[in-house]
Write a protein that binds this DNA or RNA. Structure first.
Length: 199
DNA sequence: AGTGCGATTGACT
DNA sequence: GTCAATCGCACTA
């Protein structure tokens, strides 16, 4: 990779579901003191406008306010008191919606990811939203960060054949379960969730 | 002020 | 397959 260039905001689709699909195949890059860690996004979920499963559904609060930032900003929250979740705001300023990044295929800084995770197995380093955040050392300190500029964390372009992208139901939620707002790389071993959800 | 519960994970039967 | 860990938040009163 010759040049590091963050994705421009103008390159991001404004619609949440479109952004969720667009982000599959793109890179998440994390700058740590020990070096750069990156991975290819292989799984996302859209939490769209008017979605009862979205944290933004009941309006802005102290926790979820980053979801209301212009598209391309990080929304990081702690799930189950244990796992940090990395999301990307997805609409115009003032509208709350986002894309959850659920899994990465590790590319750069794999030894750093192994240390961050305390495990060896490549497949499990960033398979699942909580694992991904731990591998990249993403926590609430990065909440609200602009991911369209170089900094602690940003997005980069990477090519993927759109035909490799599959779509299915979201994982781990009770409301709005049937909406097909999960996007993932077909047949990727780095995608989370049971095989039965593949289609 | 108290309660219930999650956009999960890892350990265990 | 089941289940506990762990805590911030939203909701009720």
């Amino acid at each position: 990779m010759a040049v590091r260039r963050p994705l421009k905001r103008s390159e991001l689709p404004i619609d949440t579901a479109s952004l969720a699909r667009y982000l599959v195949g793109r890179l998440v890059v994390r700058a740590l003191p020990e070096g750069v860690v990156s991975g290819r996004i292989v799984e996302t979920e859209a939490y769209v406008i008017g979605d009862a499963a979205s944290h933004a559904y009941r309006g802005t609060t102290l926790r979820n306010r980053s979801l209301f930032l212009e598209r391309g900003h990080a929304y990081v929250y702690l799930a189950y008191g244990i796992s940090n979740m990395l999301n990307i705001s997805s609409e115009v300023s003032g509208i709350g919606a986002g894309v959850l990044i659920r899994a990465l295929e590790p590319l750069e800084g794999i030894p750093i990811m192994r240390l961050n995770r305390g495990i060896e197995r490549l497949r499990d380093l960033a398979r699942g939203p909580g694992r991904l955040a731990m591998a990249l050392r993403v926590d609430r300190q990065l909440d609200g960060l602009d991911l369209c500029r170089e900094g602690p964390l940003w997005l980069e372009h990477h090519d993927l054949d759109p035909g490799e992208i599959a779509q299915g139901g979201r994982i781990g939620i009770s409301r709005e379960k049937d909406r097909l707002l999960r996007f993932y790389v077909r047949n990727s071993p780095f995608v989370s969730g049971p095989r039965s959800l593949m289609q």
